[in-house]
């Protein structure tokens, strides 16, 4: 009996394309170009680490529920862990953004990497705003009543009601994190596909070059 032909079925074709686009040594490399040995390249993975903490602490909050996070010491701790993970997330993500902006990180067919990063930042801001609305305390009530005027003035309030805690909670813990998570995965896969952007004027071998491709 001969071996089944590869690439005939959609699963085989998809596998062949994935392995050819992202061979294991490129997907999970154990070495990086010399120019990556700088602290400015650390903030992307720091953002990812903070995102993991946010999702983990948010999952625990969802398991415990609002009565638990308002009335118990451990609940308060996990609530604070969630908040400060978000503070750290935005802190390091904006430094990551500054670093990538000033090195024009969209060079070398990396536009999709840049765009998914921008979208992840914008969606993260939206996710954080809905987080303010679902604290279930006086602070969230105040923020919701202030936000409703702004949202209503755009016309979006007809179907996106910031005073509706149930709707905001589901946006905060399901819809927006799902989109941010998918964007983060696509962003990271694009980094692995195209590689870490070299500094302006430096070739992929880490040496200075006059090749125009190193500048655009």
């Amino acid at each position: 009996m001969s071996a089944p032909p590869t690439g005939r079925s959609w699963t085989g074709a998809t596998r062949d394309r994935l392995v050819s686009a992202l061979p294991p040594d490129q997907l999970l490399p154990d070495t990086q170009p010399a120019y990556v040995a700088s602290w400015i390249y650390v903030f992307g993975v720091a953002t990812l680490a903070a995102l993991v903490m946010i999702i983990a602490s948010g999952t625990v909050l969802a398991i415990g529920g609002l009565h638990w996070w308002h009335t118990t010491a451990v609940g308060h701790f996990v609530n604070s862990l969630h908040l400060w993970s978000v503070e750290l997330f935005f802190f390091v993500m904006v430094i990551h953004l500054w670093g990538k902006f000033w090195m024009a990180a969209w060079r070398g067919r990396r536009l999709l990497t840049w765009v998914t990063g921008v979208l992840a930042l914008l969606l993260s801001i939206g996710t954080a705003f809905t987080g303010y609305l679902v604290q279930t305390n006086f602070d969230s009530q105040w923020i919701a009543t202030q936000a409703k005027d702004g949202i209503n003035s755009t016309g979006v309030g007809a179907f996106w009601n910031v005073l509706n805690v149930g709707q905001m909670l589901l946006w905060h813990i399901v819809l927006l994190p799902l989109i941010v998570g998918v964007l983060a995965v696509v962003h990271i896969v694009m980094v692995r596909l195209r590689g870490v952007v070299p500094p302006i004027g430096i070739g992929t071998d880490g040496e200075p070059t006059s090749d125009p491709k190193a500048f655009r």
């Binding site: 700088s38 602290w39 400015i40 650390v42 903030f43 802190f91 904006v94 430094i95 500054w98 670093g99």
Partner: peptide, 11 residues
Amino acid sequence: LLMLTVFVAAL
């Protein structure tokens, strides 16, 4: 200001 400080330090 902290973010700017960390950014410059990273460079």
